[in-house]
C-alpha cells in the first residue's frame, strides 16, 4: 500500500479552510462537503505530481473551484437564482444570524465567477494576480469582475440599524 502520510498531513491541515471556501461558493454545508470531498479525491489521484509544485495551495484552490464549477454544470445541480432577496430590519440579538444569511443570499445571487472572485479575494485574501492564476484569467478580468461584484453587493447590502432609536434617527 502506498505511503500517503504527506498527503494526509497536507489535507488535514487545510480541510477546514477548504470547506469554508467551498461553503461560501456553494452556500450549503452539505454541498460544500461534497465539493471538498471530490476535490480531495482529485488531489489524491495526482498527488505524486502535485507535491512537486511550488505553490500547492494555489493549485488546490484551482481544483476546488473547478470542481464547484463542474458540479454546477450538472443538470440536477443547476441553480435557480431568486431575483429579490429579503432584507429586513431585525432585533440586535438576531443581527449576526441575519447578516450571515444576508451575505450568503447576496453571494448566491452573484454569477459564479464573480462569486468566486469575491470569495478568493476577500475571504482567502488572495491578491489580484493570485486570483487570476486560480481562475485562469487575466488580472484585468479579475479587477472588472471584482468591481462589478462589489457594486452589486453594495447595492444589496443595505445597512441595518442597530437599535430602534438608531433606526428612527
Amino acid at each position: 500500500m502506498p505511503d500517503d502520510s504527506d498527503f494526509r498531513e497536507y489535507v488535514t491541515g487545510r480541510l477546514d479552510q477548504l470547506r469554508r471556501t467551498a461553503y461560501l461558493l456553494c452556500g450549503d454545508w452539505h454541498a460544500a462537503d461534497d465539493v471538498t470531498s471530490t476535490a480531495v479525491m482529485k488531489l489524491m489521484r495526482h498527488w505524486r505530481r502535485i507535491r512537486e509544485l511550488e505553490n500547492i495551495d494555489s493549485y488546490v484552490r484551482q481544483v476546488l473551484l473547478r470542481t464547484w464549477l463542474d458540479e454546477r454544470r450538472r443538470p440536477w445541480r443547476r441553480e435557480w437564482a431568486t431575483a429579490v432577496l429579503p432584507v429586513r430590519a431585525v432585533a440586535a440579538a438576531d443581527r449576526v444570524v441575519d447578516e450571515r444569511l444576508a451575505i450568503m443570499g447576496h453571494l448566491a445571487a452573484l454569477p459564479a465567477r464573480r462569486r468566486a472572485v469575491i470569495v478568493l479575494r476577500f475571504y482567502d485574501d488572495l491578491s489580484v494576480e493570485e486570483t487570476a492564476a486560480v481562475l485562469g484569467c487575466s488580472t484585468g478580468t479579475v479587477k472588472s469582475q471584482t468591481s462589478r461584484a462589489l457594486d452589486t453587493l453594495r447595492a444589496a447590502l443595505v445597512p441595518v440599524p442597530e437599535t430602534a432609536e438608531e433606526a428612527a434617527r
Partner: peptide, 29 residues
C-alpha cells in the same frame, strides 16, 4: 465584507468528510 464573510463561515458543522473513505474510493477507482 471581509468580516461578513468570516462571520458567515464562523460556526461550521462537523465535517462529513472521511479521509479513509475517500482514500478507499480513490484506490478502487
Amino acid at each position: 465584507l471581509q468580516e461578513m464573510l468570516k462571520t458567515a463561515v464562523a460556526d461550521p458543522p462537523p465535517p462529513a468528510i472521511d479521509l479513509d473513505d475517500l482514500t478507499r474510493r480513490v484506490r478502487r477507482r
